[in-house]
């Protein structure tokens, strides 16, 4: 088992009342799964991804990642954990504007203190694999949305994570670009990377091998059809 959420609650106080962002979420994820989280806006998809990605805290419940109890870890250890095992892909790509494609992909390696020669080799592999060698010296602003997201995924993959968290990865893309990205995810999944994506789109969700429906922070039981 890669990760396990047990009765996670997360709320904010509004006018003295608790508003639940996550309400009793339990979830087991095995290695090699491709999970799609669906739900309308504000249903808690992003929050759930952020909690899984350890970027956000929760008030109650247990979270075990790769055998480690995340809820009782200190921030530093948590950071070490996600740095090692998790890659993020965002709807708005979140590339660093001042860095070139090459440098953007390289950045996670810098933070992992990997040697220069090894970095070069890894980044070159990645550029090769995504067919963007020719674009390595361009800045994000010079790329199309689809290409930017490609770089975003390459960057998420460079540190060889076990888990990729993708928050509406195709939300800013047209349908053709979106399809390409989803195909890529599928391919990665078959290579063994665990993927959890949040999405609005039924067709994108269908790429996953399990779909979780969220509404107002709660898991909805929907008949599988």
């Amino acid at each position: 088992m890669l990760l396990q959420l047990n009765h996670i609650y997360k709320w904010v106080k509004q006018g003295g009342k608790r508003v639940f962002l996550l309400n009793d979420i339990s979830l087991d994820v095995e290695e090699g799964e491709f999970i799609s989280i669906m739900g309308p806006s504000g249903s808690g998809k992003s929050t759930l991804l952020n909690v899984i990605g350890m970027l956000d805290e929760f008030q109650e419940g247990e979270y075990i990642f790769d055998g480690e109890p995340v809820h009782s870890l200190k921030e530093k250890q948590r950071a070490k954990l996600y740095k090692e095992y998790i890659g993020f892909v965002f709807q708005a790509y979140h590339l660093i504007d001042e860095l070139t494609v090459y440098e953007n992909i390289e950045t996670p390696l810098l933070y992992k203190n990997i040697k220069s020669s090894e970095r070069k080799a890894l980044v070159a592999d990645m550029l090769d694999r995504f067919n963007i060698v020719g674009k390595k010296d361009l800045f994000p602003a010079q790329l199309s949305g689809g290409q930017q997201q490609l770089v975003g995924i390459a960057r998420a993959l460079i540190a060889k994570p076990k888990l990729i968290l993708a928050d509406e990865p195709t939300g800013n893309l047209n349908s053709k670009q979106g399809e390409e990205i989803m195909e890529l995810f599928k391919e990665l999944n078959t290579e063994g990377v665990t993927i959890i994506q949040a999405t609005h789109s039924e067709s994108n969700a269908a790429y996953g091998n399990r779909i979780i429906h969220l509404l107002d922070g709660s898991k909805q039981l929907q008949p599988q059809n």
Binding site: G53, L55, K76, K83, F88, H94, I96, Y111
Partner: peptide
């Protein structure tokens, strides 16, 4: 801000 956030998700420590 975005750069800071991004760098943090990419594993940058406060010190860095």
């Amino acid at each position: 801000l975005r750069e800071i956030g991004m760098r943090k998700t990419l594993g940058a420590a406060k010190k860095q």
